[in-house]
């Protein structure tokens, strides 16, 4: 049970002067329960890739499937597959449309043909997951909420489809540090409790380092690296910079300390790890 992409190629407007190659031979598998971060600069092919995973674009070449369902089949047949994959696009609050929050969240499950009882249960659960109180918000107009609440409502609309795989495209863009932290706490909880696979597209290397178990780096339509973040951030600092990316702030700080002669191990990529190391190191040094 997995999302598998085999040798996916994709070209926009093929055969015209405006043809643009977006993906060239991407092969990867995302297992149930994975927490994957996908990084790459703008135009590297990230958004094309997630649209392939969600069956929203047909590959020019290659094969994409979800839990064994071939995504190149007809509209009707891949509808079942779409139900397994939830995609939260950038600025998801811009897709809200219904008269009440309840109706908006129920849109997905109803489209998937769920019964009214199932839908109701899914809506309540999704609202609880994103921290929107049912009694307070269910009958409110989506357009009367604050920016942060709208974002959470839109995410609930995707969660209500109870996808096995959740793709999040820059979900924390524009949020302040506190909202950002709260958001990820909720996502990590959903990931752990329901075993939902998460594919996090982000520009924020700290988020990738802190939350993902696996990191995909994409550049010019090709998969550059596919390994645990610790390995990639420790080994390929220079290569990442060359493709317009960076390492997490903690890894950068670690590098500065290392250059000074502080023996920080190469595999430290989060602030918590660096703090733990420095505490033991300073104390050890104090004893000498």
């Amino acid at each position: 049970m997995a999302i598998t992409l085999e040798q996916i190629h994709y070209t926009y407007s093929p055969g015209t002067p405006f043809a643009r190659v977006a993906l060239q031979g991407v092969t990867l598998t995302i297992e149930k329960g994975d927490f994957v971060a996908l990084i790459g600069h703008t135009g590297s092919g990230k958004s094309t890739l997630i649209q392939q995973m969600g069956g929203l674009l047909q590959p020019s070449e290659g094969k994409a499937s979800v839990d064994g369902i071939d995504l190149s089949r007809k509209e009707k047949e891949i509808k079942a597959a779409r139900g397994k994959i939830g995609i939260v696009f950038q600025y998801p609050e811009h897709q809200l449309f219904a008269e009440t929050a309840y109706e908006d969240i129920a849109f997905g499950p109803r489209n998937l043909g769920r019964s009214p009882e199932e839908t109701d249960r899914a809506v309540r659960r999704a609202m609880a997951q994103v921290g929107l109180d049912f009694d307070t918000f269910a009958q409110r107009s989506p357009f009367r909420l604050s920016g942060g609440q709208m974002r959470r409502l839109a995410i609930a609309g995707v969660l209500a489809m109870e996808p096995a795989y959740l793709i999040l495209d820059e979900p924390s863009a524009g949020l302040d540090p506190r909202s950002r932290r709260l958001f990820f706490e909720q996502i990590v909880k959903s990931h752990k409790q329901q075993g939902m696979a998460i594919i996090l597209v982000t520009h924020n290397m700290d988020e990738a380092a802190r939350y993902a178990q696996r990191l995909l780096v994409i550049n010019e339509g090709k998969l550059l690296y596919d390994a645990p973040p610790r390995e990639i951030f420790a080994k390929y600092q220079k290569e990442l910079e060359e493709v317009g990316l960076a390492v997490p702030a903690a890894a950068r700080l670690a590098a500065v300390l290392r250059a000074r002669g502080v023996p920080v191990p190469a595999d430290i990529i989060t602030e918590a790890e660096l703090e733990k190391f420095l505490l033991t190191w300073v104390k050890k040094r104090g004893k000498k």
Partner: peptide
């Protein structure tokens, strides 16, 4: 990050002088 880390180290009883907000300043202090 450097400021946050300096604050945490201070709380753990490690003496760090000066206002630290940049990576180089933390390196200098340590």
């Amino acid at each position: 990050p450097a400021g946050r880390l300096a604050a945490k180290l201070r709380k753990a009883g490690i003496k760090i002088n000066g206002n630290i907000i940049r990576d180089e300043e933390l390196a200098e202090a340590l």
